[in-house]
Amino acid sequence: MTSAETVQIMGPMLGLVVGQQTLEHLADRSLRALLALRLVLCGMLILGLYPALATWGLFAYGIALLHRFDGPYNGGSDKMTMLILACLSAFYIAPSPLWQDMALSYLAVQLVLSYFVSGYIKIINQEWRTGQALQDVFLFSAYPVSTSLRGFATHPRLLWGMSWAVMGFEVLFPLTLMHSTALLFGLLVAAAFHLTNACLFGLNRFFWIWICAYPSLIWFQDRIIG
């Protein structure tokens, strides 16, 4: 798969994901006028019409929304959305195939770092190693989507196991780059991890946008190692 083919796959995926984010924003009446054109740009990406123009337009919209919300509206998922848009925008204006590859590689490396750094900063923290941190997430953080889920806080052994499963997966994720089958398996586990977070903590945007970046990593593994 070439970098151009990878971007062709990612464009419609990105259009769908940003379109879903935009429709959610439209529930807020104060944003409707601002976001109508954004839906048109998403449609262009989905249909493959002027993808470079649509990508640049969505990147400009992303900057406007950063100003509107004085930072990311939805934390990490907005950061990943903008990162993908920035890398694809750079891809479209890159002066040569080498620079196109560099733009896509940057996204792939950031995707790997999103798992590895997140796991590393947990594993060096005693509260995460003992399971206390995940217990606190369920006990008093704002993240569980319902009161009944807070009951997980009364199962410390389960949470200890879950903590180590998450940390282990995250820090070992870079090793999946060694083989294409390992990477596909790693991405399936990662998607399941995001799906769990979406169900338990309501982080639905993370699930879709991280999947959207996966083709860049599949291309990267094939280009660099495969």
């Binding site: 879903q20 429709l23 959610e24 924003h25 529930a27 807020d28 919300f69 509206y73 939805n74 934390g75 704002a142 569980p144 989507v145 319902s146 009161t147 009944s148 799906l195 979406a198 169900c199 309501g202 982080l203 639905n204 945007r205 699930f207 879709w208």
Partner: peptide, 27 residues
């Protein structure tokens, strides 16, 4: 926060979750 959210609602919220995302924005 609601007392309980069923599996069906959790799956539906993968596609449509504006209230929850507004709440995360408030956090």
């Amino acid at each position: 926060e609601p007392d309980h959210i069923g599996l069906g609602a959790m799956i539906a919220r993968l596609f449509w979750n504006p209230q929850r995302n507004n709440k995360l924005y408030m956090v």
